[in-house]
Nucleic acid binder design. Structure first.
Length: 551
DNA sequence: GACTAACGCATA
DNA sequence: ATAATATGCGTTAGTC
């Protein structure tokens, strides 16, 4: 039984709410109640809550111990609908949507507040003037109609529903937090970097390595200043253009080894050192501030602390609670499988129908068993390779998997021509900024590319990748939604999500059930997103005490 | 002091 | 196998 209610927070902790008819209009009286969380918590029969912003409301509900099954996030949906209509970038607040509906001047979105370490996810909340409840009801009804204007209305409904669900997942993950051992982290820092001068100065190891670098050059060189390092190498007779690690590695000079070690440790020191620990880890939990759909392609971002860039060495600090385990699962070779599902290339679907090594299967099919070649060709197709040996491999791929390559080629061409490009469910890549003239588009891969043609080509690589990466993000939303539902009766908690990888923290006795639930969620997401497809989305799962042991 | 660009590197 | 996609973020140097 579908029972929808709309709700909005009122001053002083109260709420205004109303039951809705299927068309979004209120089904009865509009109620005012003194306690927002109680208003929701006392209505467990409600199947979907319609509200302005999950980031505004849901952390408050969670803080009161109230969870909801489903929601409909009006401002998030407004962004997706605007994007689909090629109007990404227009204000997406409820107030703006209401103004567009009534013909009033459209207010710009308030600027997002800067990240504040340790604060709960409500920091994403758009701070704006309260809008009448009537506006919320009317904008909701209007959005329901606008879904019908989409190229694939059913897919669009799936997209907005699943991203609303993603908002719930994000708030719940931030509430739970990733278990983080401050002790292990400090031990790790001491082991890698040594003690700090005066307890808070530069770590001993960095000072030593900087001295080694200077000694190797015979004069003072500061390794954290690229200009300094470049000059030193040039004076020593080495031609280098940058101080990037892979370029330095080609040089035969005694400064190289300590320099590379310095860069590695310096990165850890600045990005995940003592200050990071102080700022971002509290009460044994790291809360990255997940934001679903934070990128154009629909990938999530985090609001602070570099939550999606936790270096592998630092993962030793992610430790399950006593008696609990971490179920770490990543979707294997996700992007080529997504390409199979969206392109419906028969040969690629066939190899993606097996959960084994996809690149090996592709190599058997088209590259005489050379897996490296096959992998390069597939990645080249997805990323838009422009040079190198891979091009030859790409030609072979095109021959054996024509529909798959045509799919991304079409996306690239659409991008180069400035047309809209969409993911499978309808998330839309905004049109390119600079319009391109016909000559630019026709122009052959000129010997000397014009800025416009370079721009068009870069655009094409972007949109080529967008359809795959973005459709993977579509799939991931449905996978998370299904997993969240499956975990609801357990003690297990989703605590981390990173593009194609999830971590569930659970009592050890639940680990097996969790692993099963993850694969089931993956299978369900495949069917829900793409319809019946032979493509398998296999998860590689490890149950560990320590994140570092998962790989 | 606030802001930005360029750089470099961590993740998928 | 650092070529190609997407990000976040901390540093320094330069500008206002």
């Amino acid at each position: 039984m579908d029972e929808r209610w709309a709700i909005a927070a009122e001053e002083g902790g109260g709420a205004v709410l109303a039951r809705l008819q299927p068309d979004g209009q209120p089904a009865g009286h509009i109620l005012h109640e003194p306690d927002l969380a109680a208003a929701v918590g006392s209505r467990p029969q409600v199947t979907r809550w319609v509200w302005r912003s999950s980031a505004e409301i849901y952390p408050r509900l969670l803080a009161s111990g109230v969870r909801v099954d489903r929601c409909y996030d009006i401002e998030n949906t407004e962004g997706l609908l605007l994007g689909h209509a090629g109007r990404l970038g227009e204000p997406r607040s409820l107030a703006a949507a209401w103004a567009r509906l009534t013909g009033a001047p459209v207010p710009p979105d308030p600027p997002a507040r800067a990240a504040v370490p340790g604060e709960q996810s409500s920091l994403f909340e758009i701070q704006e003037e309260p809008v009448a409840f009537e506006a919320l009801l009317q904008v909701y009804a209007d959005q329901l109609r606008r879904h019908g204007d989409a190229e694939h209305p059913e897919r669009m409904r799936l997209l907005t529903a699943s991203e609303s669900s993603g908002m719930l997942v994000a708030a719940e993950m931030d509430r739970a937090g990733l278990p983080w051992s401050e002790t292990v982290h400090r031990e790790l820092l001491a082991e890698l970097l040594g003690e700090r001068f005066g307890g808070s100065g530069e770590p001993r190891r960095l000072t030593e390595l900087a001295d080694e670098v200077s000694a190797a050059f015979g004069h003072r060189v500061r390794p954290d200043l690229p200009a300094d390092v470049l000059k030193a190498f040039k004076n020593a007779g080495y031609q280098v253009k940058t101080t990037r690690r892979w370029e330095l590695e080609t040089l035969d000079h005694p400064a190289v080894a300590p320099l590379i070690e310095y860069k590695k440790l310096y990165r850890i020191y600045t990005a995940n050192g003592w200050s990071w620990l102080h700022d971002w880890v509290h009460d044994g939990r790291f809360r990255p501030g997940f934001l679903p759909g934070g990128t154009v392609s629909g990938r999530w971002v985090t609001n602070g602390g570099g939550g999606l860039q936790i270096p592998k060495v630092i993962r030793r600090a992610v430790v399950a609670d006593p008696g609990w385990s971490l179920v770490v699962a990543d979707a294997s070779q996700l992007e080529p499988r997504i390409l199979a599902a969206i392109s419906r290339d028969p040969a690629l679907m066939k190899v993606a129908g097996d959960s084994g090594d996809l690149y090996k299967a592709v190599s058997d099919e088209a590259f005489a068993g050379n897996r490296d070649m096959a992998k390069l060709a597939v990645l080249g197709a997805i990323y838009g390779q422009t040079s190198g040996d891979g091009l030859k491999n790409l030609a072979m791929l095109r021959k054996r998997f024509p529909r798959a390559v045509a799919y991304v080629d079409d996306a690239a061409r659409a991008g180069e021509e400035g047309r809209l490009v969409r993911t499978w469910l309808g998330r839309t890549c905004p049109p390119s900024g600079a319009p391109l003239d016909a000559a630019t588009l026709e122009g052959p891969p000129a010997d000397e590319p014009t800025p416009d043609s370079r721009h068009a080509r870069a655009r094409g690589r972007f949109t080529r990748n967008f359809v795959v990466q973005g459709s993977a993000a579509d799939w991931a939303l449905l996978m998370l939604a299904a997993l969240r539902q499956a975990l609801a009766p357990l003690k297990a908690e989703l605590v981390f999500f990173q593009h194609d990888e999830v971590i569930v923290h659970c009592p050890t006795e639940e680990a097996e059930a969790v692993s099963t639930a993850i694969q089931a969620a993956s299978d369900l997401a495949g069917t829900l997103t793409f319809g019946p497809t032979p493509t398998r989305f296999a998860f590689t799962t490890a149950t560990v005490q320590n994140y570092a042991d998962a790989k």
